[in-house]
Design a protein around this nucleic acid. Structure first.
Lengths: 179, 179
DNA sequence: GACAAATATATCAGTCTGATATATAATGCG
DNA sequence: CGCATTATATATCAGACTGATATATTTGTC
């Protein structure tokens, strides 16, 4: 049986409701973007393999001229998802290109490096504002099946970390600008 | 010309001093581990391609019976590195498997999910302690070429973010345990 | 001097990204 | 109403990277 994480992410999204590959991509880019990501080039083949393994089912929407394929999770898929959720997390992988440029900053000089940090601060600020707005919506929305509580906790994580990024930038920018 | 980031990471490390592929891997696993990573399976082929493109040079250490290959950066390589450092960072990629398991926590239940968060807290605590020790060493060590200042700033980043993780865990663990 | 751990490199199947291509449906606007 | 733009929807693939596996030597240690 496959051990790909993308299998489980997609099954997780399908456990909430049935959807197309395009919709899965959009959910990732909105709800999961600050802690996960995937491209179409992996999503569509993974959906096919999930169907082949009996973890998901495909149904064509013939009413639409758009060749729409709607996927739903099977009982076996839900089992697979639960097994994975019960295992401890293997590793959290971080790749901050910004930090790389900071680490080698001596080669480029302080002004260039300060520019990278300012860009990082601006991006973090924008992401934080989005998350704060998401929190407001989540708190007021009804939570039928209980999954919103968990969604909200990931949003709180994003708020915490992006807040830390901003604090950090405000601390080291003056240092870089005075070098 | 290649646009791989690993090219630039390796050139950055070689810009500090010449070393073997094994040494490059070790530096990544110690100094860069909390914001970057790479496997031997990518490091060795990349070193070969850097030599092929004239960005690095290889020299065999025949004194050692270990088939040791020592790589150093060329003038062209230093140029390439500087060009990359001057460009804005494209994107910072985060993949927290822990957050994924939190997001889908409703499927597994609060006790299981709390376990994931406790594991995350323990790992973060260990990483934070390492970084605090690294900071002490860095502050007292001499900084000949000026690169230590930048290294220290990345350590401060790690301290800030791992500190935020710990705060977060302490905030949501009681919530999960009371669900 | 035997054993474990550290040093050192090589290879590869499986996985993923980022780019590119293609087509239809909905929406805005003058 | 017609035209352009944007959103929806899927497919494909070269190039990049991981994680595992294999191999061999050197150094430390009891």
């Amino acid at each position: 049986m496959t051990e790909k994480k993308l299998d489980c992410v997609i099954l997780g999204l399908l456990s909430h409701e049935e959807m197309t590959g395009y919709e899965i991509k959009r959910r990732m880019d909105t709800s999961l973007s600050y802690f996960w990501g995937a491209s179409y080039g992996s999503i569509y083949p993974t959906l096919e393999s999930l169907v082949k393994d009996g973890l998901a089912e495909k149904r064509s929407d013939d009413n639409s001229g758009r060749n729409k394929q709607i996927y739903s999770i099977t009982e076996k898929g839900r089992e697979h998802l639960k097994n994975w959720l019960n295992e401890p997390a293997k590793r959290d992988e971080l790749r901050y290109e910004t930090l790389l440029k900071l680490f080698f900053g001596n080669e480029a000089g302080a002004p260039v490096t300060a520019g990278h940090i300012r860009a990082f601060r601006d991006k973090s600020k924008a992401a934080l504002d989005q998350l704060l707005a998401a929190r407001v919506n989540l708190i007021s929305a009804p939570d039928e099946d209980g999954s919103h509580k968990y969604y909200l906790m990931t949003v709180e994580f994003g708020i915490k970390t992006y807040g830390a990024y901003l604090e950090y930038c405000d601390e080291i920018l003056p240092k870089l600008e005075n070098m």
